[in-house]
Design a protein around this nucleic acid. Sequence first.
DNA 1: CGATGTCTGTGACATGATCACATCCGGCAA
DNA 2: TTGCCGGATGTGATCATGTCACAGACATCG
Lengths: 210, 210
Amino acid sequence: MAPLCRNAGTIMDRTNRNRTTITKGTHLFRPGQDCPGYVVVHEGAIRVSLTAESGREIVLYRVRPGDVCLQTFSALVHGTPYTAEGLAETDLVIEIVPPQAFQELVASNHAFRMRLFGAVADRFSDLERLVEDVALTGIPARLARALLRLADADDAVNVRHEALAIEIGSAREVISRQLAAFSRSGLISGTRGVIHLVSRPGLHSVAGEF
Amino acid sequence: MAPLCRNAGTIMDRTNRNRTTITKGTHLFRPGQDCPGYVVVHEGAIRVSLTAESGREIVLYRVRPGDVCLQTFSALVHGTPYTAEGLAETDLVIEIVPPQAFQELVASNHAFRMRLFGAVADRFSDLERLVEDVALTGIPARLARALLRLADADDAVNVRHEALAIEIGSAREVISRQLAAFSRSGLISGTRGVIHLVSRPGLHSVAGEF
DNA sequence: CGATGTCTGTGACATGATCACATCCGGCAA
DNA sequence: TTGCCGGATGTGATCATGTCACAGACATCG
């Protein structure tokens, strides 16, 4: 079956109004706030997450150049406030397209629409995988997947345990113990600071991916 | 903020080709299968769920008249196979719009596109709530929410424990125990066969909704 | 070097998932 | 009716994970 939309690449490269720079660590939005417009990320990454009253948190997805911030899309389409939290994970260059301009773009620009459809479908696939992970998959597999996802070209992962816990919707202590277990098994080396992936195949196996 | 799309109601009432009747209990699709076209539900409900290798299962969402089957949308947009399972929860009247016809509709019909955007955004909100439920919410609240969602106008819920477990991504035994607890607390009466909601306010309170 | 604050390790316990098996209940046949 | 059968439900034991409390390790700064 041929894909309906092949190019879900960078959206709106041509527009160049209202660019804003945001400092790493800033909250772009929080639950309950109104959405000022469609958010386009030109540089950097936004981390979108949910937080429970207990303080437990889970990352829904990241918005990088070319991605759709589904929160923004959904808030605009429905005219409802944000339901999740958006954090600048790095320094950002973003652009905020006011609702009316967004609506006009959707109405007038077919290429934009198709990219939007493609990007929304991507995001949906991510969320579906997330549900599968959280509801049906155990901690070892989820952590192994997160390590493989977050590792750089040198097989190094440099994140605090707390951040790893938020990544997979678990708790810091659980991560600490599971990293120790992976280390004992020889899958990784080092459980704190920079973690090195010793055996990617081993981790893939634990992750249940072949 | 004004909603961009007010009417996410029934999509494609006007098309009336290729209507098909499906018997309750039939699988419309399974993971790995190719998507033959965009699925429109005219009558009945499709239950879309994920199943783990262990046999554990969780309901992602239901497709009723006017809803978008995101699985179908995503499969068509990406040209990829289904990733979840679709079951006829009731007898169905559906219509399958071939990929090319779907693409032409998206390209030519603005009202259709806007409804599609609206319905996709709805579905996304559902999935986000699901992630929140599964990742951050305890069994009592999830079960209470499911009971409130599934109860009919007479406050009666007639589902097997196994089905309730799939509804919230838990296990039959856990449902059995939690229903017994609700019954002891006087929130419901009867834990098997038809369950009656005695105190909706009480259940809402357990559900964490006010 | 020591004080301080943040991150990490670990034991104890609570909650939920899994397994094994007992019990209940509704048909159905003799 | 009685007894059997199979699916659905109840329950204890055990394992995996989440939560809480606190101790130990490390970095930073004076």
